[in-house]
Design a protein around this nucleic acid. Structure first.
Length: 595
RNA sequence: GGGGGCGUAGCUCAGUUUGGUUAGAGCACUCGACUGUCACUCGAGAGGUCGCGGGUUCGAGCCCCGUCGCUCCCGCCA
């Protein structure tokens, strides 16, 4: 690192010293990572964000008082040390340390920040497990001292700088939007903030800056981006936090191709910063094709194992399950697993349990072993069907009968688990993909009501709207997701810029009343009526990208102060009860008994 | 909201299968020895609400019920 880290108190970062520094007299500040007291000579490993350096205190170059002080200092204490950088003899070099060719012969030490015994170790023994995550979060000030987490956050910083540079160089303006905003009835649950001056009224924290960024386009800023903090009050996962960061982008006078090209460049730049070359453009697939071949709108293309339609093959068979499903308007779909015939009954039952967990009644099996077909289906198969299915020796066919919204998720899970078992997943492979032509709406299976697949501001495909004016469930949206190895990195759409079309969309979503539209989305509609350019954009899930590029197993390892799965901060202790006076001032009362 | 896993010393873990004397180990910590270590080594010591509450039992870290916390998954996340 070439930045001038010299200050009034120190001359260098200890982790930056190399053989070229030999002979220099330096003053370093850092944390005592480990100590080795050999009696006459004392070694301290000094750590800062740049790395670790061995400091030696010996009678030939250090006074007795300084040696005694060094022998007494506790690990994780902050010290200032003055000394001379010396080369280590060959047999004393430490190849595991970037600074291992040199050491500091100390002449002075001052303990500027003595540390109490740490509640959990920062320096870990070889092979020793990390402390429980609960403790790591509770003592985050210590956990964040670990070089691994520091490396994650430093990479995160570099990725953010790359994104800013990339977008700024292309004319995107970094504009900020409110954190205290308006509750939205759509989508996820809002975090609400009570208003003190308006009794009974609330702000919401933004789920995304969606409408604001569209308004920037209507204002004529032309290109916008923001490193946007977003808030959603939903249950958590390893890859989901209640507050998270998006790289949020919007541009005017663009179509889908403009946004896709920009996003590919941005993704390539981010991956390049992490040392990975990414080939652009990315392959593309329609939503319909993804669902048909993979049962999933973000397929993992590192392996094939594609789904097949078996409806026509199965239709003539006198087999109750498939006949019933087909008669009810469903289909029979499945996948052929090479080598799956060798799996035990129990192993296939486990797959069936996965499928059932996704809502199907069961998993049909047909295996081909030693040239013979075996399974409940076998005796119903006609010669034509056998030919059509065309199982090779060792193959296992797994099939599901039913409606598409049932067979797809079930087969998706089965496919993923089969790939895992067969070792088909190449962990080093990177399969980027655009999924295009998402449906505009999905139906609530219970009520039949339409809901936006992406969001209500997405533009419907104009040709679909013209062809099926009264069948909006057939409309595709001008929306796109970018996917890597089965993980959604981000998504966006071209927006509706015609206020009449936007009104119609609200109407289809059950917000038919003009007054209600104005009340809830008036600020958007007003903007559209004031003259809106065609516009669209995308948002990338930045935490997830940082997680992938750092190799971290959890989002919590790329967020400095994350929440637990119960949405708590264990370190600072949030959320927390507040006193009655504060509540009264906000015109709030809780129904929770207090002790 | 539902299901699974985990919870024993400051930390990582054994002990729970089949209930039985005073609950162990490594690291860290304290004291001592040691002049080239780099997970220093060696000796000694201190350190326990077995997550919490209740129950069964002559006896519970271990069995039962409840509860809390962390975690993974489903629902949820436009």
């Amino acid at each position: 690192m070439s930045a001038p880290f010299a200050t009034a108190l120190r001359t260098d970062l200890c982790g930056a010293l190399r053989a070229t520094d030999v002979g220099r007299t330096v003053t370093l500040g850092g944390w005592v990572h480990r100590a080795r007291d050999l009696g006459g000579i004392v070694f301290l490993d000094l750590r800062d964000r740049e790395g670790i350096l061995q400091v030696s205190f010996g009678p030939d170059w250090t006074s007795a008082e300084v040696i005694a002080a060094a022998a007494k200092v506790g690990v994780e204490s902050v010290v200032l040390i003055e000394g001379t950088v010396v080369a280590r003899p060959d047999e004393m070099k430490n190849r595991d340390l970037a600074t291992g060719d040199v050491e500091l012969r100390a002449t002075r030490i001052s303990v500027v920040g003595p540390a109490s015994t740490p509640a959990l170790p920062v320096a870990r023994g070889r092979g020793e497990q990390l402390p429980a995550e609960e403790l790591r979060l509770r003592h985050r000030h210590l956990d964040l001292r670990r070089p691994e987490l520091q490396a994650n956050l430093i990479l995160r910083h570099r990725l953010l700088q790359v994104a800013r540079r990339f977008l700024s160089d292309r004319g995107y303006l970094e504009l900020e939007t409110p954190i205290l905003t308006k509750p939205t009835p759509e989508g996820a649950r809002d975090y609400l903030v009570p208003s003190r001056v308006h009794p009974g009224e609330f702000y919401a924290l933004p789920q995304s800056p969606q409408i604001y960024k569209q308004l920037f386009m209507m204002c004529g800023f032309d290109r916008y981006f923001q490193v946007a903090r977003c808030f959603r009050d939903e249950d958590l996962r390893a890859d989901r936090q209640p507050e998270f960061t998006q790289i949020d982008v919007e541009a005017s006078f663009v179509d889908q191709e403009d946004i896709i090209a920009m996003a590919e460049g941005l993704v390539a730049a981010l991956w390049a910063e992490a040392g990975v070359t990414v080939t652009i453009p990315f392959p593309r697939m329609t939503y319909a094709e993804a669902m048909e071949r993979y049962g999933c709108d973000r397929p993992d293309l590192r392996y094939e194992l594609t789904l097949r339609d078996l409806t026509d093959v199965m239709r003539p068979l006198e087999f109750g399950i498939t006949q019933g499903a087909i008669a009810a308007g469903g289909r029979v779909r499945g996948l052929v697993v090479p080598g799956g015939a060798a799996w035990s009954r129990k192993q296939v039952d486990e797959l069936e349990a996965l499928a059932k967990g996704a809502g199907v009644g069961g998993l049909l099996r047909l295996k081909c072993a030693e040239g013979k077909l075996d399974g409940p289906l076998a005796k119903f198969l006609t010669a034509d069907a056998t030919t059509a299915i065309a199982l090779a020796d060792g193959d296992l066919l797994l099939a599901v009968a039913g409606a598409e919204h049932v067979t797809s998720p079930a087969l998706d899970r089965v496919r993923q688990e089969c790939a895992r078992r067969l070792g088909l997943v190449d962990e080093r492979a990177r399969e980027f993909l655009w999924v295009l032509d998402f449906p505009m709406f999905e139906r609530d299976p219970a009520t039949g009501a339409l809901a936006a697949v992406h969001h209500p501001f997405t533009a419907p495909n104009a040709a679909d709207r013209a062809a099926y004016p009264d069948e909006p469930w057939r409309w595709r949206a001008v929306a796109y997701d970018v996917v890597l190895n089965g993980t959604e990195l981000g998504g966006g759409s071209i927006r509706t810029s015609d206020p009449a079309v936007q009104s119609r969309m609200f109407e289809l979503l059950g917000i038919g009343d003009a007054e209600e539209q104005e009340r809830r989305f008036g600020f958007l509609l007003e903007g559209l009526r004031a003259g809106a350019p065609p516009h669209g954009g995308i948002a990338l899930g930045f935490d997830r990208i940082a997680m992938l590029l750092s190799g971290a197993p959890s989002l919590r390892d790329v967020i400095a102060f994350p929440k637990t799965t119960a949405a708590r901060s264990l370190f600072e202790g949030a959320p927390t009860p507040v006193n009655d006076a504060d509540l009264r001032e906000l015109h709030l009362r809780t129904d929770v008994a207090r002790d």
